[in-house]
């Protein structure tokens, strides 16, 4: 029995990856929930918005690398991120002007706007694939580990290693900063408050003189920034492939709905609920359990509840349970 090693194995295989993945989902879900709260539709193009922002960031990263610019131990992509955000913001603002605004003025039903967002999804998807192709792109550089397995072993003398990859650390730190900034913005600034007011009660917000076009534009800006950051962090941590980003729609929407669509706090909670459920159910527990139990009781199988191929089934199942038993989500949705 070796509880310390069991704990380290748990941290290494479940907790740390879950923290990073959860942060990525939370950022994605925040974007979805903001759009839902202000523009009142489920944006199916969000996954591809993430892909678009990541693509621009990757291209700029390559250019920087080509010019010999790096960010020391940190990924160069972080330097390219502002450009990615700016390009994505410009793209979604143009989309809003050319596409969504018409339906907003018409007061079209949310379902129609969702179908419109499918069209936008197609276009973004096509652009991304056209420019960067359909294949995996790995663009992480800089130091690979904050704590490598070997260093940890040498420092602690434990058999089980604990490795923290730079991308994981970067993900969590960036997410904390972004979320803190977002909440400060929504809670403390005039524009942020006006967004919350607009989301809460559109008619009254108009009566109070809040400019709807400005609120909508700011919302798109923030959603573009969140999507790009989430996409780049996910791409750094795993890899970038356009189709994977489309598939991320499901866990991201699950996170937003589990938390309560329209609730930023809920989106964050939902992101971590989905990420940890996925990892807990698809993790092979053999190693951890072997450490935790007396030797005579060591298990034979992998002790994996579900193959990782079915990770979508996890978010889906949680989604269905929430929809059936608490349709408004963990935090009551509908307003920022």
């Amino acid at each position: 029995m070796d509880l310390l090693n069991a704990l380290v194995a748990f941290l290494n295989f479940v907790f740390i990856p879950g923290l990073a993945y959860g942060a990525q989902l939370a950022l994605g879900a925040l974007g979805v929930t903001l759009i839902y709260g202000i523009l009142r539709f489920s944006n199916f193009a969000h996954g591809d918005t993430m892909a678009f922002g990541t693509m621009v960031t990757i291209l700029v990263t390559w250019a920087l690398q080509g010019a010999g610019v790096t960010f020391g131990p940190l990924p160069t992509a972080l330097l390219a991120l502002p450009v990615g955000i700016a390009a994505t913001a410009a793209f979604v603002l143009a989309t809003d002007r050319v596409v969504y605004r018409f339906y907003r003025r018409q007061k079209a039903s949310p379902t129609i706007v969702v179908i419109v967002s499918l069209g936008v999804m197609f276009v973004m998807n096509g652009i991304v694939r056209l420019i960067i192709g359909v294949n995996d792109q790995n663009f992480a550089d800089g130091a690979r580990f904050v704590i490598s397995a070997q260093e940890f072993r040498e420092a602690t003398g434990l058999a089980e290693p604990l490795a923290i990859r730079t991308t994981q650390a970067v993900t969590v730190v960036t997410a904390v900063i972004v979320v803190a900034l977002l909440f400060w913005f929504l809670q403390k600034t005039r524009t942020g408050k006006s967004m919350r007011a607009f989301s809460d009660n559109e008619d009254l917000a108009l009566l109070s003189g809040i400019n709807p076009d400005r609120v909508v534009a700011v919302t798109w800006l923030i959603a573009a920034a969140l999507a790009t950051i989430a996409g780049v962090l996910y791409g750094l941590d795993k890899s970038f492939k356009p189709f994977t980003y489309f598939q991320l729609l499901l866990p991201i929407f699950a996170a937003a709905i589990v938390g309560g669509l329209g609730s930023p706090l809920g989106a964050i909670a939902g992101g971590f609920v989905i990420a940890f459920s996925e990892l807990l159910l698809t993790n092979a527990w053999k190693k951890i359990v072997t450490y935790a139990l007396p030797e005579s009781m060591a298990p034979d199988g992998l002790l994996q509840l579900m193959s990782t191929d079915y990770k979508f089934a996890v978010s889906f199942t949680i989604l269905i349970i929430v929809l059936l038993f608490m349709p408004t989500g963990l935090f009551k949705g509908k307003s920022l």
Partner: peptide, 29 residues
């Protein structure tokens, strides 16, 4: 509103999710 008229609708006349003070701030937007 800018000319000095203010209107209180019969229903849905407050921002329910915001604090009382924030409601007043929004009134003065």
């Amino acid at each position: 509103v800018a000319k000095g008229m203010a209107f209180v609708p019969q229903t849905h006349n407050i921002f329910t999710s915001m604090t009382v003070e924030e409601n007043l701030e929004m009134g003065a937007f």
